[in-house]
Write a protein that binds this DNA or RNA. Structure first.
Lengths: 200, 200
DNA sequence: TCATTTACTTAACACTGTTAATATACATAA
DNA sequence: TTATGTATATTAACAGTGTTAAGTAAATGA
C-alpha cells in the first residue's frame, strides 16, 4: 500500500498524479484501450478513488486535453508575436498546429475526431480547443488587415484553413498504413496550397 | 420466435439482414453505442448467431463500410465520366466526397477517423476506401495531363486534396457544436481554395 | 473523549464482446 | 420409413468494462 509511488504523493496532489498516469496511458495505448482499473493499478489506488477527483472517464480525459491544448495555444501565440510578416506567422502557426497534433495524437483525436452527441463537458467558448482556433483566427485577421487575402470574410477563411490543417493532422494520425508521400513534404504542401489558394 | 421479421428471411440472406439492421443502428446511434446484443434483439436472433456470419463486431462494421464505399466510388466515377473539363470534374468529385461523408457519418468516421493500430482487416490495396481515393487520383491525373496544375507530382497533389476534403468532412461531422459559417459555403470555399492553390 | 469529517476501499450492478458446449432442424443415405 | 450427418441457432458462461452504494479507517475539531 505505502510504497515509492504512493510516498511521492504530498497532500492534495493526487489529482495531478492521476492525470499524469492517465495521460501517459492514453497517449501510448489510446483512450478506449485504457480502463479506469488500469489507471488505478498503475498509481496503486483503488479504481473508485479516481471518481473522488473526476466525474467519470470522459471528464478525466477532458481535463487532460485542456492542459494539453492550453500549451498549443501558448505555442501559437508565441509564434504570432515573434514573426512580423502576417502570412509567414500564419504559415508557421499552421505548421505548429499540425506538428502539435502529431506529437499528441490521442489528445488530438479525442478533441477533434470524436463525435460528441451530447453537450460538451466544457462550454465550448471557454475550451482550450476553441481558444487555439481563436489564436489561428487572429493570425488570419492580421493577414486580412494587411490586404493579403482575396476574401474579406475572416471567419470563412480561418475555418477553411482550420479544416485543411485538421485534415492532414487527422489522416496522418489515423491512416498510418496508407502509402503517404514524405510526411513533411505533404504537410508543407497542404499548408502552402491553402495559403496560396486564400491569397490567390 | 417465428414472426414477421424472421419470416422475411429466405434461405441464406440472414447475412444481409444482419448487415441491414446493423447499418441502421450504427448510423443512428454510432458504432460504440451499438452492442451485438442490440443488433441481435432487433432481428430477433440470439447474439451469438451473428458470429456465424461475421468474425466479430469490427468485421461486421467493416463489411458494411465496404458496401457503402463501393457506392461512393461508383458515384465519383460517374461524375468523372460525365464532366469533360478535368478541373470541373475534380471539383464535382470532391463535392461528392464531402457530401457522401456527411450522408454516411458513422461509416465515414469508422473508415477515416479511427486509429487502426493493428493491420487493417481488409488489405488496404483492395479496400473500397483506397479505391475511392484512387478514383480521386485519376481525376487529378487528368488535370495534370491537361497542364492545369502547377505541380507535376500527382501523388502529392491528390494526397493534399484528399487531406483537405477529409478535413471539412470530418470537422463538420464531429464538431457539430462549433459555430461554423454556412456549411455549403464552407465546403465550397474549402474545395475552391485548394483547387486554386493547386492550379496557382 | 466523543462526534464529525475526510480519504479511501470493498462489493456489487448492469453492461460489453466473445467462446464453448449444447440443442434443434433439415437433408441425405440405408 | 428410420438413421445419420450437417448446418444452424441457442444457452450459459468468462473476463472485462464504467460506475455507484455502502462501509471502513484515520484525521480533525469540540
Amino acid at each position: 500500500m505505502k510504497n515509492a509511488v504512493r510516498k511521492q504523493k504530498e497532500k492534495d496532489n493526487l489529482r495531478q498524479i492521476i492525470m499524469d498516469a492517465a495521460r501517459e496511458l492514453f497517449v501510448t495505448k489510446g483512450y478506449e484501450a485504457v480502463s479506469m482499473r488500469k489507471i488505478a493499478e498503475r498509481i496503486e489506488y483503488s479504481p473508485t478513488t479516481i471518481y473522488l477527483y473526476f466525474e467519470d472517464k470522459v471528464d478525466l480525459m477532458t481535463q487532460i486535453c485542456e492542459q494539453t491544448f492550453a500549451k498549443l495555444t501558448r505555442n501559437i501565440k508565441a509564434i504570432n508575436r515573434k514573426i512580423a510578416d502576417p502570412i509567414e506567422a500564419l504559415r508557421a502557426g499552421m505548421h505548429e498546429y499540425v506538428n502539435f497534433g502529431l506529437r499528441h495524437p490521442s489528445h488530438y483525436l479525442l478533441l477533434f475526431n470524436t463525435r460528441v452527441p451530447e453537450e460538451p463537458r466544457i462550454a465550448f467558448a471557454e475550451s482550450n480547443g476553441k481558444i487555439a482556433f481563436e489564436t489561428l483566427r487572429e493570425a488570419v485577421k492580421a493577414c486580412a488587415d494587411a490586404h493579403k487575402l482575396s476574401s474579406k470574410d475572416v471567419d470563412l477563411v480561418s475555418q477553411t484553413l482550420w479544416t485543411g490543417i485538421h485534415g492532414v493532422t487527422s489522416l496522418l494520425i489515423t491512416q498510418n498504413h496508407f502509402p503517404f508521400v514524405n510526411r513533411k513534404k505533404l504537410i508543407a504542401n497542404a499548408i502552402d496550397t491553402m495559403i496560396d489558394g486564400a491569397m490567390k
